[in-house]
Amino acid sequence: MINNPNLTRLRRSMMFLNAQKPGLIKDPFIYKPDSIMLDLEDAVAENQKDAARYSLYHALKEINYHGVERVVRINGLETAHWKEDIRVCVAGRCDSIRISKCESAADVIAVEEEMKKAEAEFGVEHGEILIMAALESTKGVLNALEICQASPLLFGIALSGGDYTKDLQTVISGTGVEFAWARGQMINAARCAGKQCFDTVFTNLDDMEGFRKETEMIKMMGFDGKSIVNPRQIAVCHEVFTPTQKQIIQAEKIVKEVDEKKAMGIGVFTVDGKMIDIAFYPGAKRTIELAKAAGVYEGDL
């Protein structure tokens, strides 16, 4: 059993940053994303993998990110880099490690085993650093449930659309049709295992309307947040994933009424003309929790 509050923390926006670029990693907290993902993988050229690690280590040790979660994306398990990537992540005490190109439960377990070795070496408690898995292939998406169930350290899974569409032999169309099955499969697997689920990046920075529509759609599907590539996307992402005052008031009413009516032996009733029963309770509770985590709840629940 892992007792780490980060397992369920708020992750509406997870922003990629190249760990090798000092100008990017020195102060991204000013934009207030929920998480940053310091990248050792695709953003870093093959001949700069070593330099990126030194840069990452000192950033983790010396830069105050003001409570923004520090996730590190490590190189894939098929590369020569990933084991040393894990050593530097553990030595620098990042908050979470993102496994790229994760395809099976065995991949997650392999990462956890390397983390255990590094934790013993650097005196870091097991459970302090969490794992998330990026699913980037048809195999990875098909194995979503076993990946979600592979480790108590794993807090969630994320779709990585670029590689996934290559594997599907299609392209990113902007309609979302190419991701429909993967998104549905992943959110089902994640919820079944009690984990979080994150959507892929939206790379057209000039199409903010398209970004908003896509974010609203994945929110409606059940996702917890979205990977982003630019600070400009944070505000929209947070707006979509933060409950509105109307939703909060409605949720408050439901929670209070269900509690009250339960004591009176009443199972089904109406709130503002809508039928409510116990099935609405967890959703309403979640809205309140989300509002609290986002810092917009002012009630007394």
């Binding site: 070593d50 030194y54 840069s55 950033a59 040790k61 830069i63 020569a80």
Partner: peptide
Amino acid sequence: ALSCTLKARVEGAVFRASGYTE
């Protein structure tokens, strides 16, 4: 550069110069 960057770049150059490869 911040001091964390200076350190990282010195280390990068030194380890490369002393033959540490991936």
